[in-house]
Nucleic acid binder design. Sequence first.
DNA 1: AAAACGGGGAC
DNA 2: GTCCCAGTTTT
Length: 343
Amino acid sequence: MTFTENLTSWYSVNKRDFPWRNTTDPYRIWLSEIILQQTQIKQGLPYYQAFVKRFPKVYDLAQASQDDVLKLWQGLGYYSRARNLHETAKHVAFELDGVFPTSYSELLKLKGVGDYTASAIASICFNEPKAVLDGNVYRVLSRYFGVDAPINTTSGFKVFRALAQDNLDVQNPAMYNQAIMDFGATQCTPKKAACNTCPLITACTAYSTGTVSELPVKIKAKKPKNRYFNFLVYLSKDKKTIVEQRKANGIWKHLYQFPLIESEKALPYNALKDRLDSELKVDFDLRLYNKQDVVHKLSHQHLHTKFWIIDLNQLPQKGISIAQLSHYAVPVVIENFIKDFNF
DNA sequence: AAAACGGGGAC
DNA sequence: GTCCCAGTTTT
């Protein structure tokens, strides 16, 4: 049996059941693929179910506000996905009469849809013979064929894309693409690969050369940068606080937060007290909520976070009632604080 | 070509 | 701690 035949045979027995595998509706396939970008199924599944329930059709998503979409996306990360999701929904609903493009090349033009996602939708929904190339596929191909080109370089990408396309089952690209991804996710795993029960073992290059744990090759990421965040949690006598929307490019764009002072290093109590004295010009009580910095770790940044509680009679600017806080999409580090603080 | 972009899970 | 995840966009 060929690599491809072996794989589809394995899939016919070991296929996992997911809600997006019971449909070829491009809206739902697209939605699942965006949610699952750089996201494990275990984490993404509840979000998929929530989105389908809240927005059953692309038109429902198109009519929503960005704030509502971001709120439903809250906690999933990579928030540009949610912004692009909403933009594309509006584009499809209002300019394409609610009909998704039906080819790889047209799908690729949609915001948030790259090579992987266009291939996935084109193959799963329209049987177009385009091989997907995701983290699972890199791993399976690199090991089986013994390819040590780094997967996160342009040259490596070309090698693997050609290899992926060469081995695609052009008669059934939908099944093949899902088979190789499922195989990578459950059998040919990053660590502790299940070689002892692998149907491809006799022809696997990495297994025969003892290099399973060394493949695929990936250029290491840089060390994350340290940043120091001071969130100002205003608290007035009439149970109000202040939130603001992050407007700039960068992390958490368009999410909400307590007013933020970023400092070069840890901000001393007195430095903040003096600064607020001159800015507020009213009586207030300042205290640090967390004695230890909350270190919120992102892929490229470690955020050393302090939450400062500012009690005063009246807010210095327009605020919102504490009761409304739960309606705003906030970063996880803020959501954790809100739960812990319990207002 | 490299960097930016989140958060959670496995080990 | 380190690595990875049904990647895409921006610089």
